[in-house]
Design a protein around this nucleic acid. Structure first.
Length: 441
DNA sequence: ATACTAGTTAGAAGGATCTC
DNA sequence: GAGATCCTTCTAACTAGTAT
């Protein structure tokens, strides 16, 4: 029983490395997305040649365009709860497409509007607040109370609005790039926090707002537009590596049942993992949301099913999805102390491996004495052995021991890492099943 | 001012399906 | 059966609000 299917094999010439994929999937700019949205309104399922022409028109990779349409259809389907109306694709004649779309005057009313769960201030209220903010960004409490009464908001809401607006409209110059973290990658030390305003029309920024100092919404749009030629404001996605994930998961499990570690704890983790605190916070927040979502889903499925083999099915289901359930965290925990799990007991949420080679390096297994749980080196190694692809083990070892990649066997490197950690004495041994092992004493 | 919550967006990944 | 394409899921990063 395998939790996931192996990757679809590709011919050698078409295997894409992770970096290639990432490069291919470089973020589209705001302007490109706008144009894609527009095209999507008319043709949700463009054929290949249409996408090719569109890609050329927008200066994008055709694969990226295709991927975008696919994801977009999925998003629309999910949000509407129904399938798309799919008119037949236009005959694939580039000349018929009129792909050169206008740069201004886009009717964003036709675009899907964002849904927010909480009520927001009305346009009139926003205007009044904005007017005051223009004059007095730090208006006195009394002034804010007056305007609150006038426009029908609570003083605390007005106060919050001012706080938020001050925070979001001041563009801070980004300092010279911080040195890249060897583990986590580049980190921005100062964030330019600006409001993206998907519901503000470009015309409000382009036509009616000659100055950047007019409205926080239009300012945000201008900012985005200004940057659109190069990049959007959204940070590129990064993923915690397996060792970081292992530590985060353990901390998550330890923070049960609230799953909300204190700020001090998060700071501690951030320091330990060489990650920004904000990312640690986000990780916990997203993990908790994900956990809740899954629990709800499972309960739903359980309610709707009279299957006698419920538990078995659940487990299987979670395995298939690589789900990050509480049970998954518990598995991760027990893994470190038991040390005698079978393949089926592997903790869930195995990071997606990028290794697609046909002759994978030997799988590495690690056994760890329970009383060394707290030793970081050991836990890092457990993370490596259980969660990483051979390629990732290789990369990690190279990074940790600063050794050229080629000549040394990954297992030897792993052993060296272990010895350097002082936490464990690696004893490689050969297994009958062809795997290799490292015993952490 | 800061930390927090809840909800949303969209990139990345990989399995499923289609086409030849 | 191989390769291309599509679809779905996960989750990092985000916004907009509230609470302290």
């Amino acid at each position: 029983m395998s939790p996931t299917r192996p990757p679809t094999p590709r011919r050698a010439g078409s295997v894409r490395s992770q970096s290639e994929r990432k490069e291919r999937a470089a973020r589209s700019t705001a302007q490109q997305r706008k144009q894609l949205e527009l095209f999507f309104q008319r043709t949700p399922r463009p054929d290949t040649s249409q996408m090719q022409v569109l890609a050329e028109d927008l200066g994008m990779d055709a694969d990226h365009v295709s991927q975008w349409f696919s994801s977009k259809r999925c998003r629309v389907k999910r949000s509407s709860g129904s399938s798309l109306v799919t008119p037949p694709a236009t005959p694939s004649t580039g000349n018929m497409l009129q792909l050169t779309l206008p740069d201004v005057g886009v009717d964003d009313n036709a675009l899907p509007q964002p849904k927010r769960g909480k009520p927001r201030v009305t346009q009139e209220q926003e205007d009044a607040l904005q007017e005051l903010f223009e004059r007095e960004p730090h208006a006195s409490l009394e002034t804010k109370r007056d305007v609150a009464e006038r426009i029908g908001l609570t003083p605390s809401k007005v106060n919050s609005w001012f706080t938020f607006t001050r925070a979001t409209t001041v563009v801070k110059a980004e300092p010279s790039p911080a040195p890249s973290s060897p583990i986590y990658g580049p980190v921005r030390t100062l964030r330019t926090r600006l409001v993206r305003a998907p519901y503000a029309t470009p015309s409000s920024s382009a036509a009616s707002t000659p100055s950047l100092r007019t409205s926080r919404l239009s300012r945000a749009v201008s900012y985005t537009s200004d940057r659109s030629a190069e990049d959007s404001d959204r940070k590129k996605r990064t993923r915690p590596n397996a060792a970081q994930l292992a530590v985060l998961r353990r901390a998550f499990k330890a923070s049960a049942p609230e799953y909300k570690p204190s700020l001090a704890k998060r700071k501690e983790l951030a320091e330990e993992l060489d990650m920004p605190v904000s990312k640690v916070t986000d990780w916990f927040r997203n993990s908790l949301a994900s956990l809740k979502r899954r629990k709800g889903k499972n309960e739903e499925e359980r309610d709707g099913s009279d299957d006698e083999n419920e538990d078995e099915d659940d487990n299987e289901h979670e395995h298939e999805k690589g789900a990050q359930t509480l049970e998954g965290y518990e598995s991760a925990e027990s893994m470190e102390s038991d040390g005698d799990e079978t393949e089926d007991d592997l903790p869930l949420q195995t990071p997606r491996s990028t290794f697609t080679g046909r002759n994978p390096l030997p799988r590495v297994d690690i056994h760890c004495e329970p009383d060394l749980d707290a030793v970081r080196g050991a836990s890092v190694l457990v993370g490596i052995a259980r969660h990483w692809s051979p390629r990732e083990v290789e990369d990690f070892c190279n990074e940790r021991i600063n050794m050229a990649a080629a000549a040394v066997d990954p297992l030897q490197k792993l052993a060296l890492v272990a010895s350097k950690s002082r936490a464990c004495s690696p004893v490689p041994d050969a297994r009958q099943d062809g795997t290799s092992g490292v015993t952490v004493l």
